[in-house]
């Protein structure tokens, strides 16, 4: 399963880039139209639930990106194919942005629904920890001067963080039941109407396209960075 990246692949990625950017903006605009104009307001939360259409996709992709990051780090350790390291490094920063966005939009959504900006609930706390894991991954790589070592070390850290996230989720859940028996965040999730599913699906697709676009741009960037490091050594 040894995939090798050659110049043809890079040219293909390069030529796909404008189309991807166009597709991302197009789907985002349709998604915005549906989520702001075409969908009905929620009958409990009113119009504030429109924040869900950007909050939920960014939270999903924050988690998915970390899974891809940790998975590619594991695959890199198993197969020793440097492609996986490049994938991990190109995807990490997009994940960090998505995590930050889900935290900010979630907090803005929390103010009208719960009355507070932040709740010390398992989901929110583990997202916050996830953000710091992304920061640790990115900045540890930058802090170590020997870049080959730096990738190995930060990959090990990403895998440890992947083990740590479920432990934190579990422990904060346990801690919550101890400290605040009636958590306000435990609103039962009602089944979502189809008219709300369409904008959610569109925004998810748009976020996915954004993830792919920026990851491919960063993929090229990381490859050039690697080449420059190799020539300078």
């Amino acid at each position: 399963m040894y995939i090798k990246i050659n110049n043809n692949h890079i040219e293909l990625i390069k030529s796909a880039n404008p189309y991807l950017i166009f597709a991302t903006t197009f789907v985002f605009i349709i998604g915005l139209y549906y989520s702001l104009f075409q969908s009905p307001p929620d009958y409990i939360q009113g119009d504030s639930m429109r924040i869900m259409y950007i909050h939920v996709p960014s939270a999903w992709f924050a988690l998915m990106t970390y899974s891809i990051l940790a998975g590619s780090c594991v695959l890199w350790f198993i197969t020793r194919n440097p492609l996986f390291n490049v994938v991990a490094r190109s995807i990490a920063q997009v994940g960090m942005v998505f995590t930050l966005m889900s935290l900010i939009t979630g907090s803005i959504w929390g103010k009208p629904t719960w009355g507070v900006w932040w709740v010390w609930d398992a989901r929110l706390t583990s997202m916050l920890i996830l953000f710091f894991l992304y920061i640790a991954y990115i900045f540890l790589w930058q802090a170590i001067s020997n870049k080959e070592l730096a990738s190995k070390i930060s990959a090990a850290l990403a895998i440890i963080g992947f083990i740590n996230i479920p432990i934190i989720k579990f422990s904060v859940d346990w801690w919550n039941t101890l400290h605040q028996p009636a958590s306000i965040s435990k609103l039962s999730a009602p089944s979502i109407d189809v008219s709300m599913l369409i904008p959610l699906f569109l925004m998810t697709a748009a976020c996915f396209l954004f993830l792919v676009t920026v990851s491919l741009i960063r993929f090229r960037l990381v490859l050039i960075e690697n080449k420059m490091l190799r020539t300078s050594n």
Partner: peptide, 13 residues
């Protein structure tokens, strides 16, 4: 920054 997230479960329990 690396260590504090790993310390969180210890502090909770």
């Amino acid at each position: 920054i690396i260590m504090i997230p790993l310390f969180v479960p210890f502090i909770i329990f």
